[in-house]
C-alpha cells in the first residue's frame, strides 16, 4: 500500500518539489495552516491565499490547491484587502515573510490591523533576508552580523506582535516552528475570528541565519527556540531583564471589535 501524507489532498497536483532549503521552517508553517483547515473541516475552495515576495511567499503559492494570488514584494495585504472587500464571504489568508510584511509592506500591515479587516496574516519571521542572501532585516536582532551588517546590526528589531496589537488587531499570537501544535491551534483560532488576526512564527533559516551566525543547523536552531521560549502566562511574572532574549509564545491578543466588511455592509443597507 502506498502511504500518502494526510494533507496531500490540499496540495496542488504537480506542485510537489518545493523551493525551500533543507531544514527550512516554511514546511512546518505550511503544515500548520493545512492541518488547521483540515481539523476545522473547512473547504479549501472557500479560501484565497495571498502571498508576497521572499521564501515564505512560496508557502501557499503554488503548493496549496486553492485560489492563490502571488503578488509583488510587500503588497500582499493590500491585494488581500481588495479580495476580502469584494468577496467578504471568502477566507482570506496572507502568508509571507518578515521582510515582505514588516519592512517594505509594514504600512499595509498596520493599516489592515487598524481597519480590523477579516483576514488572517501569518508572518514567517526568520529575522533575515533569506532569498537574497542573508541581508539584515527590520527583525534582525541587535548586534547580529549579516552580509549587510558586517560590523554588527546597529538597529533594534521590530516586535511585530506589539506593533499589530497597538494598531488594533483582534487576534495576535506568536509561536516558533518548534511549537507546531500551538501554532496549529492559533491558526484555527485566527480562521474563526471575525476581525484581523496576526500570527508571528519565529522560523529558522539554517542557511542564511544559522550558518552565518554560528547558531547551527535547523535542529540546533529549533532547540534554541525551545530553550528560549516562555509562555505568555509565565512571562507575565518576569521582569524585563529576565525576559531579555526570550521568545514569548502564545496568544497575546484575543478580543472582539467591529470588522471592516461588516461595517461596509451596513453602509450599503442604508441605501436598500
Amino acid at each position: 500500500m502506498k502511504l500518502v501524507h494526510p494533507l496531500m489532498k490540499y496540495v496542488r497536483p504537480g506542485a510537489i518539489s518545493t523551493a525551500t532549503c533543507t531544514g527550512c521552517g516554511d514546511g512546518i508553517i505550511a503544515q500548520a495552516v493545512l492541518r488547521a483547515i483540515d481539523e476545522l473541516e473547512l473547504n479549501i475552495d472557500d479560501f484565497v491565499f495571498v502571498s508576497g515576495i521572499g521564501c515564505a511567499g512560496w508557502i501557499p503559492s503554488p503548493f496549496f490547491n486553492a485560489d492563490t494570488l502571488h503578488t509583488t514584494h510587500g503588497r500582499p495585504i493590500a491585494f488581500a484587502t481588495g479580495v476580502k472587500l469584494a468577496r467578504p464571504d471568502r477566507e482570506v489568508v496572507v502568508i509571507s515573510g518578515d521582510g515582505d510584511l514588516a519592512a517594505i509592506g509594514g504600512n499595509h500591515l498596520i493599516h489592515a490591523a487598524r481597519r480590523n479587516i477579516g483576514m488572517t496574516v501569518i508572518c514567517a519571521n526568520n529575522g533575515i533576508y533569506g532569498m537574497t542572501g542573508g541581508q539584515v532585516a527590520p527583525t534582525t536582532p541587535l548586534g547580529l552580523k549579516t552580509t549587510t551588517t558586517p560590523y554588527g546590526n546597529v538597529e533594534r528589531a521590530f516586535d511585530l506582535c506589539a506593533l499589530t496589537d497597538a494598531a488594533g488587531a483582534s487576534y495576535v499570537a506568536r509561536w516558533t516552528t518548534y511549537h507546531a501544535r500551538g501554532l496549529t491551534r492559533s491558526v484555527k483560532k485566527a480562521l474563526t475570528k471575525r476581525g484581523f488576526s496576526f500570527i508571528e512564527v519565529i522560523s529558522q533559516c539554517p542557511l542564511q541565519y544559522g550558518r552565518r551566525t554560528g547558531v547551527g543547523n535547523a535542529v540546533a536552531m529549533m532547540k534554541g527556540y525551545k530553550e528560549n521560549s516562555l509562555s505568555v502566562k509565565k512571562a507575565a511574572s518576569l521582569s524585563e531583564e529576565e525576559l531579555k532574549n526570550k521568545i514569548i509564545v502564545g496568544e497575546l491578543v484575543d478580543k472582539d471589535m467591529p470588522e471592516l466588511t461588516e461595517q461596509i455592509e451596513k453602509l450599503r443597507r442604508i441605501h436598500e
Binding site: 503578488t71 503588497r75 493590500a78 491585494f79 484587502t81 481588495g82 479580495v83 472587500l85 469584494a86
Partner: peptide, 21 residues
C-alpha cells in the same frame, strides 16, 4: 465598495485583488 487605502501602492493592489473576485 469604496476604500481609501493607505497609499497609492495599496490602492492599485486592492483594485487588482478585487478584480480577481
Amino acid at each position: 465598495v469604496y476604500i481609501q487605502m493607505e497609499d497609492e501602492l495599496a490602492s492599485i493592489a486592492a483594485v487588482v485583488g478585487s478584480s480577481w473576485t
